[in-house]
Design a protein around this nucleic acid. Structure first.
Lengths: 167, 167
DNA sequence: GCAATTTACATTGTGCACAATTAAATTGCC
DNA sequence: GGCAATTTAATTGTGCACAATGTAAATTGC
């Protein structure tokens, strides 16, 4: 990898040049995110999912469990988009592909015909234990501890909130 | 934003469900990376660049400065890809678009006809001070301190190296 | 000295991301 | 009740990402 490390420096800046690639937080995030997606490929290949499709299923599985508890979460495309921070231009075709494969159902809400309700089907539900198994394996075989992961995750959300405040 | 925080937990897991979306480090990275790209949009719009094109320019500007110092960095598409962790399927069309706009030059290396040498043109060089200005502004107006940014960046590269070790 | 292999890009095809626009349904305001 | 404003998805178009494959130049082995 041979990337720089933790030597103290500044916002996107590493040494003295604020435009040095290795000093950019944006590049570190970009590279880390894609590396993470690559790390999920064995599981995704096994489940025959793409990474964003997997994230959609994580949400739908949560909604499914909530519904099983008697709750009625807002399960429209908009709610899904807010949860994943994705818009309909990304989600609509993605959901259509998943519907084609029988993993999810899409239907207009009777109460408000503008809303498209999305839910996991039995086929989609069947992937959950397989995903759980993969993720647990990943956890154990990883060179990273749970604490490190939790800490990094916390810092990322913290950073995200500050990003939202700035503009 | 209303995402969870730093409450101690595990690899992708937040509470007890290892599949909880808010517990996934992968999602935190994915969301943070896209939010970061969004934060760069004002600058990118001004420079009429996409985010990956900007990253390519960061590398080419470094190569340009190295060449001005009398060094001769490997400036082929392959070297660019290794630096940005992108492959030719991504870079080739991106570089062609930048060449079309006159920002970069592409030519076969005389010594090895397999190699396509990439370099910034005067037009591409002219964007550097404008980018520097934007980035310095960003640094000052940000709600995040330089130390926080440097620390997060360091942790991300650390994490990336461990990801590379694991498989 | 030349076949086999390797290297370095380019090409092809699929699936995101996201800006911008459109269209349909609902709500609010008289 | 009727119509403007708003809300919600879907559509359109561009540009990444990346797997898989192709192609040609360079290198290696014998």
């Amino acid at each position: 990898m041979s990337q720089p490390g933790t030597e103290g420096s500044s916002f996107p800046c590493g040494g003295q040049d604020p435009l040095a690639l290795d000093g950019q937080l944006c590049f570190a995030l970009y590279a880390a995110s894609r590396a993470m997606t690559r790390a999920y490929q064995p599981m995704l290949r096994d489940l025959d999912l793409t990474y964003p499709q997997y994230l959609v299923l994580l949400v739908l599985w949560e909604w499914d469990a909530a519904a099983a508890r008697g709750e009625s979460p807002d399960s429209g495309v908009g709610a899904l988009g807010r949860r994943l921070m994705l818009d309909s231009g990304t989600l609509t075709p993605l959901l259509k592909r998943m519907e084609q494969r029988g993993l999810v159902s899409r239907q207009r809400a009777p109460r408000d015909e503008r809303v498209t309700l999305v839910a996991v089907t039995d086929s989609g539900r069947a992937l959950k234990p397989r995903a759980r198994h993969w993720v647990e394996q990943q956890l154990e075989s990883s060179a990273v501890t749970r604490e490190e992961v939790a800490s990094l995750r916390g810092r990322l959300w913290q950073f995200l909130e500050k990003l939202g405040d700035s503009p």
